[in-house]
Design a protein around this nucleic acid. Structure first.
Length: 274
DNA sequence: GTCGATGTTATCAA
DNA sequence: TTTGATAACATCGA
C-alpha cells in the first residue's frame, strides 16, 4: 500500500502519539508476521519505551530503550492503527501492542499478510539499512541522482522502483513522476538527456512533498493511524486513470505493464528517450 | 465459479 | 547487469 508520503504521514502521527510510551503487552495473533523468534521479539519489546519513530523509504523504524529497533514494513496492505483497546479488532489484525497506563493500543492490520515486523539490535541497524536500502528520496541531491542514472543501463521505471538505489518510490509516484517529467516509462536510463534527468529529479521532489502535504494517496484502503485518509489521489494525473484524457493534450491515458507492474502514461506527452 | 488486478519485494532463471 | 516470471495472500469487480 504505502509509499514514501503515506509512510511519512504514518510516522508523523505515531511520533506525536506514542513517543515516550512504555510497551506493556504484545499480542502476536499471527506469528508469521514476526521475523524473529517469539522470545527474541518479546524480549526486545516488553517493558521497553519508544524513544523515537522514524523511517527510511517505506521502512518504519521504532527506536526502543531496550537497545533494539523495531522495523515494520507494510508492503501492500499493512496498516497501523492507534485505537482504544475497548474497540473490537477484526480477523485481519495480526499484532497488538499495548502501552502502560494508556487506553490506546497500536494495531497492525494486514489483509494480504505480506508485511512484517522484526527487531534488530541498534548496533546492527546501520549495516542492515545500508545493505538493503538506498538513500531516502527526500535526502537525495540532484548530483547523486544524476550520477546514479548515468552509471546504469536500466529501464527508468525499474530504476525508480529499485529501493536499493534510492528508497521510497512505489508504483503510484513513479508513474506520476515520469508523467510530470515527460518521460516514457520504457525509456532506458542510458538514453536520458541531462535536461530530462533534471526534470525528473525535480518532478519527484515536487510530487513527494505535495503528496506528503495532502496526507498521501488513499487508493483502496490506505489510512493513517487515526483512520483519516489522504487526498493526493484526487491530484493523480495518470495513476488509475486509464482512458481518461491527459490533462495536457487530452490523449487517452494508456496502461501497460512495465517491470511487471501496471504503468499509466500519456502516449503523446511521454516519448521514449533514445 | 473464473480470471485478472491490487500499493511490495525476495528469489530464481534466462 | 538486467529482465521477467513467480510467489507470498485475501478480496473485489467484471
Amino acid at each position: 500500500m504505502p509509499e514514501l508520503p503515506e509512510v511519512e504521514n504514518i510516522i508523523r502521527q505515531l511520533q506525536k502519539e506514542i513517543t515516550g510510551y512504555q510497551i506493556s503487552s504484545v499480542d502476536i495473533r499471527l506469528p508469521k508476521i514476526i521475523r524473529n523468534s517469539r522470545k527474541t521479539f518479546l524480549q526486545a519489546l516488553l517493558k521497553a519505551s519508544i524513544n523515537d519513530v522514524r523511517r527510511r523509504g517505506k521502512l518504519l523504524i521504532f527506536e526502543l530503550s531496550s537497545g533494539y529497533c523495531l522495523l515494520i514494513h507494510l508492503k501492500i496492505s499493512g496498516q497501523l492503527f492507534l485505537v482504544n483497546k475497548a474497540e473490537p479488532a477484526d480477523k485481519h489484525t495480526h499484532i497488538v501492542i499495548g502501552f502502560k497506563g494508556r487506553k490506546a493500543q497500536l494495531r497492525y492490520r494486514d489483509v494480504r499478510q505480506f508485511g512484517y515486523m522484526k527487531v534488530v539490535a541498534v548496533k546492527a541497524l546501520g549495516k542492515i539499512l545500508n545493505d538493503e536500502l538506498g538513500k531516502d528520496y527526500l535526502e537525495v541531491s540532484y548530483d547523486e541522482f544524476k550520477e546514479a542514472i548515468s552509471g546504469r543501463k536500466k529501464n527508468i521505471k525499474s530504476f525508480l522502483l529499485d529501493q536499493k538505489i534510492f528508497a521510497g518510490l512505489g508504483n503510484i509516484y513513479a508513474c506520476e513522476a515520469l508523467y510530470q517529467a515527460g518521460i516514457h516509462p520504457k525509456s532506458n536510463t542510458a538514453g536520458l538527456k541531462a535536461r530530462k534527468i533534471k526534470r525528473l529529479f525535480f518532478a519527484i521532489e515536487d510530487i513527494l512533498r505535495e503528496a506528503i502535504r495532502l496526507g498521501g494517496s488513499s487508493v483502496d484502503d490506505y489510512y493513517m493511524p487515526d483512520k483519516s485518509t489522504g487526498s493526493y489521489q484526487e491530484v493523480h494525473k495518470v495513476y488509475k486513470r486509464e482512458n481518461e484524457p491527459c490533462p495536457i493534450c487530452k490523449t487517452p491515458i494508456s496502461r501497460k505493464k512495465t517491470a511487471s507492474r501496471s504503468t499509466y502514461f500519456c502516449p503523446r506527452c511521454q516519448k521514449i528517450a533514445s
